[in-house]
Structure formats: structure tokens, C-alpha cells
Design a protein around this nucleic acid. Structure first.
Length: 206
DNA sequence: AGCACGATTAACT
DNA sequence: GTTAATCGTGCTC
């Protein structure tokens, strides 16, 4: 598998909603003991600013949200429901808290490692949730704040395949039960339509 | 020091 | 469709 160019900091220095869309089809890569584990990003959500009452930064600057206020192109990894880690990319500009949650990937490299971490789970469900993909790639708090754009990073994003607008489904963000409108329903969730990848990725990835 | 809640998941019925 | 698991975070006392 040939590596594609890594996404640079300028890529991440754009609005969260734009990036949630643009990140679909890019490749999330972890280097683990010199080995590449990767998958195409197929589902994301945008969280932007203290005014966004669905965003963790609604409470302002705290130890937890500090990373979101830092420069773009870093990882924001948070813990939830007492047992799960979720991965976000810090976006927009330094001083403004915004991030894109990575909700699902389609595994490309490191199938054996991913399978072992998702033992007993059907392949279609290895990485189809935000806490499933972190488990599969062994992402936890040690990667919170990690720079995705540093040349020696072992967590980064590569350019991938283009997804046509017609094959992208948008909708409300998931799990915001007690969040008031309009934030509860604003369509900042983006995902690749189910059949599109099946028909296309093998042609493009070989 | 204590409390309610959560950007979830898997195993149930 | 329902629910338990499980603990960091932010807020209140």
C-alpha cells in the first residue's frame, strides 16, 4: 500500500462543518510498532464554538476542553459513558474551540490487528462507531493533544478518495439528548451513503 | 465530598 | 425496543 500525502495544518484551519464534509474519504492512519493501521473516514460530526450547546466547549475553557482551544491539526480524545474513548480533530483557528468527531471508518490496513481488538464482532461492526474505531486502533487519552501534522506523528490523516455530494447523507448529530434547539437538530453529521464505498473503494484503492 | 450526566456499546427481550 | 456497564467531568454543597 502506497502512502498518500498527509493532510497539513492548513487543511484543518477551516470551519468545522466544512471539514466534517471534506474529511469523508480521507484516510486515518495509526503507526503501531512500525506498522500501518488505517481506514477511510466515512462518518463525522462538527462541533464548533462555545455557542454550540452540543459542543463540549459550551462550558468554556477547562482542563478537558483546553485542547480544542489550541492550534488546529491536533487530536482531541475524550472519555465518555465510563468506558469509551472518542477521537476528534481540532479545527478552525487557535483560540476558537472547534472539533470534528470521527464517528466511523472503513478498515483498509491492519485487518488482523483490528480483528483481534474487535474479537467476536462481525466485520461490518469493527469500526462503525466512534468508540469502536478507537478500540480497534488502540486510541486513548495518551493521544489527547497529539499533533497530527508533525512529521514524526504516529497518528495522522492522508488524502484519500473523493466522495460526490450525491453520496453524502447529512443529519442531526447523535446522542445530544438534553441539548436545546437549534443545536440538537442542526444537520452537522455527515456520512458516506452505504452502497457507495462498496462499489468504489476497490477500484480506487486496488 | 458528593452528585447527575454523558458526542456509547453490546447484550438482552 | 430496552437496559446495564462504568467513571471522568463539571457543578453544587
Amino acid at each position: 500500500m502506497v502512502s498518500a500525502p498527509r493532510l497539513q495544518r492548513s487543511f484543518f484551519a477551516r470551519p468545522a462543518v466544512t471539514l466534517a464534509r471534506e474529511l469523508l474519504g480521507t484516510r486515518l492512519v495509526c503507526i503501531e510498532k512500525g506498522r500501518r493501521l488505517s481506514g477511510l473516514i466515512i462518518e463525522t460530526e462538527a462541533y464548533s464554538g462555545e455557542d454550540d450547546l452540543g459542543c463540549h466547549a459550551r462550558v468554556g475553557r477547562t482542563a478537558r476542553t483546553e485542547v480544542m482551544y489550541g492550534p488546529p491539526g491536533h487530536a482531541y480524545v475524550y472519555f465518555t459513558y465510563g468506558m469509551h474513548w472518542c477521537l476528534n480533530f481540532v479545527v478552525e483557528s487557535e483560540g476558537f474551540p472547534a472539533a470534528v468527531l470521527i464517528r466511523a471508518i472503513d478498515p483498509v490496513e491492519g485487518w488482523d490487528v483490528i480483528a483481534s481488538r474487535r474479537d467476536g464482532v462481525a466485520r461490518d461492526h469493527w469500526t462503525d462507531g466512534p468508540a469502536k474505531l478507537t478500540k480497534a486502533l488502540n486510541i486513548d487519552k495518551t493521544l489527547n493533544g497529539a499533533d497530527l501534522c508533525c512529521p514524526t506523528a504516529d497518528l495522522f490523516v492522508e488524502s484519500g478518495i473523493q466522495i460526490p455530494d450525491a453520496s453524502i447523507i447529512t443529519g442531526p448529530r447523535v446522542g445530544l439528548f438534553n441539548v436545546p434547539e437549534p443545536w440538537k437538530s442542526i444537520p452537522w453529521r455527515f456520512r458516506v451513503a452505504p452502497g457507495w464505498l462498496i462499489a468504489t473503494k476497490e477500484l480506487m484503492l486496488g
